[in-house]
Amino acid sequence: MNEVPKIPVYIGLGSNQGRPEENLAKARKHIQSITGVFSPLSSQVYYTEPQGVKEQPWFANQVIRVLCHPAWTPELLMRHLLNIEQMLGRKRTAHWGPRRIDCDLLLFGRQVVDTPELTLPHPGILHRAFVLVPLVELTPDLCLPDGTQVADRLHCLAYRRQGLRIWQDDTHGEEPGADPDAGPRTVGSAVSATSGGTYV
């Protein structure tokens, strides 16, 4: 019997409240326990200078790669990530403010979503070194659905890295009005598949 092909999914984790490394570990454990989610791989934990609001602790950031059964949709997984955030005590207040946990859906295979509730690839992915660095660590030849090479994009960013510490002045080019802390992202229904992108 042929094995059903699974969907490669990348999830960004971040925390700068309480015990950040423990918060990331708890989030990973919850994600790994989801039925139909397999073979988790985790990047190293990187420590990132706060962006926007500098007067707060540095962030611990990490990207994990999982394989999802094809019965999963981006919207359904997003609901689960929001539930995990809530269980771990996430409170959405100020934009760029401190948070106990972030669980961001970065990429869901080659799928492209553009609704008021959900955008894939994640709209900040091209501008954040703390996302691109661990993505390249996990999958050096990763491409976005439009064919953009993640490693090439990282080389274009103005950032500095020393070991596991990352400095970046701001998120250059983030879409105006994009506010990930404005409220929970519920889910929409318009999903389209595009060609391109190399996933390992």
Rank of each mutant, 00 (worst) to 15 (best):
V136H: 06
V136N: 09
V136E: 12
V136D: 12
E137L: 09
E137M: 06
E137A: 14
E137S: 13
E137Q: 15
L138G: 06
L138T: 07
L138K: 05
L138V: 10
T139W: 00
T139C: 14
T139Y: 00
P140F: 09
P140T: 09
D141R: 11
D141C: 04
D141V: 08
D141S: 13
D141N: 14
L142P: 02
L142N: 04
L142T: 05
C143Q: 15
C143K: 12
C143S: 09
C143H: 14
C143N: 11
L144N: 05
L144Y: 03
L144S: 08
L144C: 06
L144I: 09
P145S: 12
P145Y: 06
P145A: 10
P145E: 11
D146F: 08
D146P: 08
D146A: 09
D146T: 11
D146Y: 06
D146C: 11
G147M: 07
G147V: 07
G147W: 04
G147R: 04
G147A: 10
G147S: 07
T148P: 05
Q149I: 10
Q149N: 09
Q149D: 07
Q149L: 15
V150I: 15
V150R: 01
V150K: 01
V150C: 02
A151N: 04
A151P: 00
A151S: 14
A151R: 12
D152W: 01
D152V: 06
D152L: 11
R153G: 02
R153A: 08
L154G: 03
L154K: 03
L154F: 07
L154P: 02
H155D: 14
H155E: 14
H155M: 12
H155W: 00
H155Y: 00
H155R: 14
C156I: 00
C156M: 12
C156E: 15
L157T: 08
L157Y: 02
L157M: 07
A158F: 01
A158P: 00
A158C: 07
A158G: 00
A158H: 10
A158K: 10
Y159C: 01
Y159R: 03
Y159T: 02
Y159Q: 02
Y159K: 01
R160M: 04
R160K: 15
R160D: 03
R161M: 13
R161T: 02
R161F: 01
R161P: 00
R161C: 04
R161H: 01
Q162T: 09
Q162K: 13
Q162D: 14
Q162G: 07
Q162A: 13
Q162L: 13
G163M: 05
G163E: 11
G163K: 03
G163L: 04
G163Y: 03
L164H: 15
L164S: 14
L164K: 14
L164M: 11
L164P: 00
R165W: 13
R165D: 10
